[in-house]
């Protein structure tokens, strides 16, 4: 199962980004093979529609969960129809490695 995590940098020590649509990097983590991939977000400077475009990007990687700090208005109906689960982490200062550790329970 693949999980998308929004990250503010391209290392494991980077913090979880609080926004979904305009985060600098997406981390695609595979819970079975433990493989991870950092994807730079092309929508970071988009004027509008960054959220739906980002959903398309992560959905093309077949993720089933998205971990982020906040989701925009346009996203909820979209991910609901794609059957992707949203996980909202309201704690600042969480590192990407912390999240991955929690996913490996």
């Amino acid at each position: 199962m693949k999980v998308a995590i929004t990250s503010s940098g391209n290392t494991l020590d980077s913090l979880l980004d609080e926004r979904f649509g305009r985060c600098p990097y997406f981390v695609i983590y595979d819970t079975e093979s433990k493989a991870m991939e950092f994807i730079p977000n092309p929508n970071i400077n988009a004027e509008n529609g960054a959220g739906p475009a980002s959903v398309q990007l992560v959905a093309s990687r077949n993720v089933s969960k998205i971990v982020s700090g906040e989701f925009g208005m346009k996203i909820k109906s979209l991910v609901d129809s794609l059957k992707i689960q949203m996980i909202v982490v309201k704690e600042p200062n969480k590192k990407v490695s912390d999240i991955i550790e929690m996913l490996n329970y």
Binding site: V79, D80, I84, Q85, M86, V89, K90, E91, M102
Partner: peptide, 9 residues
Amino acid sequence: CKCFFNNPQ
């Protein structure tokens, strides 16, 4: 872990 999540299925 104080997170929120939804259930799409």
